[in-house]
Structures are given as structure tokens and as C-alpha cells.
Design a protein around this nucleic acid. Structure first.
Lengths: 151, 151
DNA sequence: GTTTCATGTAACTTTGTATATTACGTAATT
DNA sequence: AATTACGTAATATACAAAGTTACATGAAAC
């Protein structure tokens, strides 16, 4: 089953952005995240609409963080990205007429709801600030990425 | 994200099979589960290889349960179907060189592992027998399905 | 004010996965 | 032998995520 990795690379992007004193273009981010500039714009656009980042057009423009890392939880980010369900499994029919199928659905949904609540609670616990303290990055570099490829 | 609903409809099928005193053909099951006979054979084949059901060829043949419902957990069934991960989200890069991305991955994986363990534990708790006691089905009918369409 | 840089977005293409379908082989029953 | 039903490879379809192209809009610099 194909996994949605947007939360993963958006976090990666936000942390790098928080370390940068200038705004970062979609092209640069796309290079760092190994994806496409348009995908970056589409995805970061959701965060901008939620007030988490700012985008500036024109020369010197790009993306920059404008939220408090202490107050931004992974759960919030996940929701902003468009919660399409956390699980790779699910019931076949939402409102079955068959009593057996209804019983199966009840049991499965119950178990999944519980696990989902736990995961959301964990994501709620973790903030961008937590991720920032997870490592020591020497000031001034980009933790493995480069602004531009060597000429 | 597209969800795998095989566990859901396999459970549905197994319970109906457990109520039947004769074996049930792939075509009949496909009708009940609203899927394709070949898909049924492929999927039930995995259960047969695990010793949970039996298949018989030729006239009067088909599929029948040959496991103890008390001892067959949903977790076991899930594993037999080929555990391809329970979550619809995941990390973008498995072994990143970037320290930031590694930190992100650690946090996300940790939260997901915990939730996965909970869900697997819940699925381990539920047996086919539990599902059978979830409803009262009058003897002799098929809880909403028919053997064959009305002529 | 026009050139350049960068986002905004619609439209389209590619890719990956699950499911469905076709076709035919094999085994068992009558 | 004819029929029934599973076994399975090969192919097609459906759909969603991601990538790409193309062009419009806006901001800055000269």
C-alpha cells in the first residue's frame, strides 16, 4: 500500500526553514526534499492557508515559517495536510445490509478508532520545537543540504 | 489513499462459511462479497496455505472453514493476508543522510510503532468466535444473502 | 516601465497499487 | 466424456498520488 509521506517531508522542510534567516524558494525546497517545485507550492500552500508559513513573490521571495514551533504540533500539521485517514486497511462497505458484515465492521472500526486516537494523541504531543531539540546542528550550515549545487 | 478491505470481507466470508453445512463456491462468495471469483480464489488461497480453510475441486466442491473459530484471531488473519503495513502515512526516505530528516523519521516512526502495537494487540484479542456471538442469526438463512438469485 | 524572479494554479501525464477480467489448465464427480 | 469448480498466469481497468507543463500574477530591481 502506498504511504502518504507528505507529513514527513513537510516537517523536514519546516525545520530547515526555521534555521534559515532568509526565505527559501520552492525550487530549493524541492531539491532538498527530492520532489517537485509545484508539489512543494501545492503542499506548502495548505500550510500558508492555515497561517503556518508565509509566501512572498518576486526576487528574494520564497517561503518562511511564521508560526511558533512550540505551539505547532504534528497532529495539527497532519490535519492541515488534509486528513485522509491514518490507516491502510478499512471496511469494504460502509453501510452494509448484511448483519454479519455490520458486526465485522463494528469490531474492526472499534479497534482502529482506538489505535487512531492513540496515534493522534502522540502526534499532538510532539511539536516542531521538539524536533528542533532532537539534534545539534552547527550554526550556519544546512544539516546536510546545500543552497545550490557546487559549480 | 486507497484502503485494503480484504480483512474486512474475508471475515465476512469466513463467518458465512462457518454457518454453512456445505462448502461454498468462489462464485457464490464473490456474489456475497461483491467481488470477483478469481479474487476470492487468490485471497482464500492464502488462508488455505495457512491451514485455515479447505478447498475442494469438482461438483459439490468449494470452500469450507477448517480452523477453530475460538483460536483464530483477526491479527493472525491480517498477517496471513500479507502484512503490508497498517498505516497510510510513512516516512519519505528510509535511511536519510540529513540529520534533520533522520530526527523527523525517528519521532514519526516511534509514534506509529506504538499505535501499531496497540492495534495489533486489539486484533489479537478478537477471534472469529467473538464475531459469531456478536449477532443472533436465525438458523437456516444466510443473514441477508441468498444462495442463488431468484429465478 | 520592462525585465527578472518567484509564487498560484489549472490541466495534463506518469506511476504505483489494488482489483477485476480473461483464458486456460487441473482435478474430481457424475 | 461431460460437467463442475479450483489454480493461476497474463492482462486490463480504476484510481489516487506525484510529477510535469504551461501560463498567469505579483513584487522587486534596474
Amino acid at each position: 500500500m502506498k504511504r502518504d509521506s507528505r507529513l514527513s517531508w513537510v516537517l523536514h522542510a519546516l525545520i530547515h526553514m526555521s534555521q534559515s534567516d532568509t526565505s527559501v524558494t520552492s525550487d530549493t525546497l524541492a531539491g532538498w526534499m527530492d520532489t517537485n517545485p509545484v508539489v512543494v507550492r501545492r503542499t506548502m500552500g495548505l500550510l500558508r492557508d492555515a497561517g503556518l508559513v508565509r509566501s512572498v513573490k518576486g526576487p528574494g521571495g520564497g517561503w518562511s515559517l511564521c508560526c511558533d514551533p512550540e505551539k505547532t504540533s504534528l497532529r495539527h500539521l497532519h490535519e492541515v495536510l488534509g486528513d485522509s485517514g491514518l490507516f491502510a486497511i478499512g471496511v469494504k462497505t460502509e453501510n452494509p445490509t448484511c448483519l454479519v458484515e455490520a458486526a465485522v465492521n463494528r469490531r474492526l472500526t472499534e479497534a482502529m478508532t482506538e489505535a487512531e486516537a492513540l496515534l493522534l494523541a502522540r502526534l499532538d504531543d510532539i511539536t516542531l520545537a521538539d524536533l528542533l531539540t532532537d539534534f545539534e546542528g552547527p550554526d550556519g550550515d544546512f544539516f546536510g543540504h546545500r543552497r545550490a549545487p557546487p559549480s
